[in-house]
């Protein structure tokens, strides 16, 4: 695919955001830091999937972003309940 200048800038910004969030995932001193960075990465990836759908000109990728956003929220809430502790 050939991208315009604005699309290339958005791709670079998405890559930089992924890199910074992933550095916090690797370096996070405690477990909640890593979980919050995973949540941030899921939001960044949802935006990145919408951006890829705009690059490719196909509306099917928006469904992928929708499913991913909803299910990543459910997964992060489950991990947060695991951090909270106690017995379910």
């Amino acid at each position: 695919m050939t991208l315009t200048v604005l699309e290339q800038i958005s791709a670079i910004l998405v890559g930089l955001a992924l890199l910074l969030g992933f550095i916090r995932l690797l370096l996070g001193p405690t477990a909640p830091d890593r979980v919050v960075s995973a949540d941030t990465l899921s939001v960044i990836v949802t935006a990145a999937l919408v951006a890829v759908g705009a690059w490719l000109g196909n509306a099917l990728y928006l469904d992928v972003a929708l499913v991913y956003g909803a299910l990543a929220f459910v997964g992060i809430v489950a991990v947060a309940r695991a951090i909270e502790g106690g017995h379910s």
């Binding site: 992933f22 995932l25 477990a31």
Partner: peptide
């Protein structure tokens, strides 16, 4: 818990 977060990544 950190390992579960890395698995989701």
């Amino acid at each position: 818990i950190a390992a579960v977060a890395a698995t989701s990544i």
